[in-house]
Design a binder for these strands. Structure first.
Lengths: 230, 230
DNA sequence: TCAAAAGTGTTCTCCCTACACCCATGG
DNA sequence: CCATGGGTGTAGGGAGAACACTTTTGA
């Protein structure tokens, strides 16, 4: 019974994928964390992730992790950095390919492994295992870059949403406040939103129009190249 | 005599770092390629790269590669993507952490391994080994993004340069043409260039002022956050 | 004296910003 | 009738884009 059956001429590191899964609850940007059940860092919160299987790419691994934790078959994911400092894991050398994922919170029912998973507001995250605090910081900074090119609302908001919700999303990602009217003007001017006839009562005060992303027009716009300045 | 001495319970991929090394000769954006001396892809051109050593991070590995090929101790490097499709290398599973590097061509003397190295204009690159054509394309696209935030001229041009040189650099990276006057206005308006009293004769026609990057002011600007639109 | 390259300034337009008023609803 | 939140428009400033003339030098 040989337990170490995979042998190489030169040392090979272990490779994992970790996912920073972002969601938005209408007020705050959230991320999904897992409470570790085993050593090292047992009991600490950590990013969902796991070892890369022999025949899957890192992206496939990240999507697999995403499904295990959220039950979602698909979401926007994007690789943003690979972490390779030799001693980042006390057990053996582990290289981590990190992904960020954007999910619609309403669609998350919880996956098989979701028992120990919990959503945290990004500004109320506990101390994390390994170097996951660094990974999270990098993910946030990539998300803040991405928001200028990519209509992240498309991935984070419900299909139909109010301008107010969209603005709150941008404000909570970027940590700033915008003028209501200027924000609406800028977004509508991009011409990637469709105003619906439907309205809802987001507050007990007054009804508000619902909007949808127009994927067609977004694709055209992306083709031409654009950037949203804030 | 056991040749496969490093054993693990689970399969581990090999990990390499590859470098896309950019330079600028005053006319064209160039990259450094290596002609492979061994199979697979023997004789084909490839990006410089190599296996990660057990006790170095990917960044250290990339800097080591850079030194071996160019003799340079330091240059701007930036990780941009990790490639992990299972069969990208026919020998065994290899995961590649890719870096881009910006070097001043005049300072490159050639390193120990530089015998089979050669500079190519980015639009005259031969067919490359492995998936290196994809990696190069991704590096170029990252460079084109980076040019908006990062004064890449600081890393690619000589210490002193003319506005014309700077403009040619931007034009060859972005593949567009700018109006001379507007380009100068925009660059000078950023206030990160120092105009020197010195002049040179870049052409036999007329002398031109030399400029230098002002690192102090660039740091201030970056602090405040900025973006160069083109 | 002509061709080629460098230096310089103005106008127009558009977008971003700051900002104020009206309307509808629930209490 | 008042407080709250949503909808809408305008005036001013700044930056980018288009654009032309002058100067210097070598041939």
């Amino acid at each position: 019974m040989e337990s170490k059956q995979y042998c190489y001429k030169y040392p090979h590191p272990a490779v994992t994928t970790d996912c920073v899964i972002f969601g938005f609850d209408g007020m705050n940007l959230k991320i999904l964390l897992i409470q570790r059940g085993i050593e090292p860092y047992k009991g600490k919160w950590a990013l969902p992730g796991g070892f890369l299987k022999p025949d899957e790419s890192a992206e496939e691994g990240a999507l697999r992790e995403l499904k295990e934790e959220t039950g979602l078959e698909y979401a926007y994911i994007e690789q943003f950095h690979t972490y390779s400092i030799p001693n980042r894991d006390p057990r053996e050398r582990v290289i981590t390919i990190a992904y960020l994922a954007l999910v619609k919170l309403q669609k998350v029912k919880g996956g098989d492994d979701a028992v120990n998973a919990q959503w945290f507001s990004v500004n109320e995250v506990p101390q994390l295992a390994f170097d996951h605090d660094v990974i999270l910081r990098d993910a946030l900074s990539r998300l803040r870059e991405r928001i200028h090119f990519h209509p992240i609302g498309y991935d984070l908001l419900p299909d139909k949403f109010t301008l107010k919700e969209l603005q709150t999303l941008y404000e909570s990602v970027l940590g700033v406040h915008f003028d209501r009217r200027n924000f609406a003007k800028k977004m509508l001017h991009l011409d990637i939103l469709t105003q619906l006839d439907e309205t809802i009562w987001p507050t007990p005060k007054r009804e508000a129009f619902l909007f949808q992303f127009n994927l067609e027009k977004y694709r055209e716009l992306k083709q031409r190249g654009f950037r949203l300045e804030f």
